[in-house]
Design a protein around this nucleic acid. Structure first.
Lengths: 198, 198
DNA sequence: GTCTATACTCAGATAGAC
DNA sequence: GTCTATCTGAGTATAGAC
């Protein structure tokens, strides 16, 4: 019995999704430049013609994928923003979400964080200016306003808060951390929060 | 003593150095994959044949460049390690050095930090495991041992200490920070140090 | 809409003269 | 050691049948 490649429940797993899933897989493992459209075509089990019917070109695949993932992450951040009240709880939830995602979908994390997007998507804004990061920044801004975070430059505060966590995620993606990054969640959170606490 | 040459008599500017300087320039601006050997050849004003005489292939250029820069940074770290006594002063000096380098030689920082080396130098260890980072880690380890840094997991402590600074450097390289990163040195240092202080 | 076959470009690498 | 000229293959993208 085939795994859910072709025949599964959401029947017609359309070519667009199939292409994007495969592209994410290959881009995050081999990198964008080392992945040819032929690789994607072969692994996805669809034809080159179909891919070029759905996407303008290879960059179009990367862009669509990036937009999807950033949008998805933006939604997660918005949800956290709405469901938590204090700055501390909000950011703790952000940490937990990012760490969880790193373990469950390292590909996604790899592609969002690690790819040098500007190298193959010249018009894209840097990831740190994208919506998800803007929401985090807004959390910090509110925190400073309400006195839950020390009075200081907003950019420095955000960098200080997220820096350690992102660092650990990179280490995990690089295979340097032996244990899941979630294992270190409480410890790194304590550090990061201390760095900006009033 | 000149820190650069070891074997051959340094001429005006030999082809090896010329090639590496040009490669650094192009790699950091356009990226490795968007830079062809022809670009390097043209901008450096030397012939393709000469380049291939000095380097095995394109990857060899990237590798030689990387090794040079990492070695250089390792020496800076060693020097700091030797010239400062306390953990706090050592790490403060590391911050200052990295920030200074970001402003004076953004290309170097860009190439060391930002290039996805594993994508085109598969055998290379991740930068975070390289010598310069190992020395920083050793500073932190000693700090914990001597009680100058809170008792905690060494990797978490290092990530927490360096995370914010590296984050700011990335922001600067991405053109997100309007002011020089050195401007934020004291503020981010205070954050990072607080995050691991006993 | 999906497919196969193929055209075209260009980067990486080599040969061999000087 | 340095150069010019050239080869080869990979990879993007298109044409056109079904």
């Amino acid at each position: 019995m085939e795994p859910e490649k072709e025949k599964s429940a959401p029947r017609n797993k359309d070519i667009r999704s199939l292409t994007l899933d495969t592209a994410l897989d290959l881009f995050s493992i081999r990198g964008y430049f080392s992945t040819s459209v032929h690789h994607i075509q072969k692994q996805a089990g669809v034809s080159i013609g179909s891919i070029y019917h759905h996407f303008k070109n290879k960059e179009g695949i990367a862009k669509a994928l990036y937009d999807d993932l950033v949008k998805q992450m933006g939604q997660s951040m918005t949800k956290i923003m709405a469901s938590e009240e204090t700055t501390e709880n909000r950011l703790k939830a952000v940490f937990a979400h990012l760490f969880e995602l790193t373990e469950t979908s390292p590909n996604v994390m790899q592609y969002i964080l690690y790819a040098r997007h500007r190298e193959f998507m010249p018009d894209e804004i840097p990831i740190c200016s994208s919506r998800p990061f803007a929401i985090i920044r807004e959390m910090v801004r509110e925190g400073i306003e309400k006195g839950e975070v020390r009075q200081m430059d907003l950019t420095v505060a955000s960098a200080s808060l997220m820096g350690g966590a992102i660092r650990l995620i990179y280490l995990r993606l690089d295979g340097v951390l032996e244990k899941p990054v979630t294992f270190y969640l409480d410890e790194i959170w304590e550090c990061c929060w201390k760095s900006v606490a009033p």
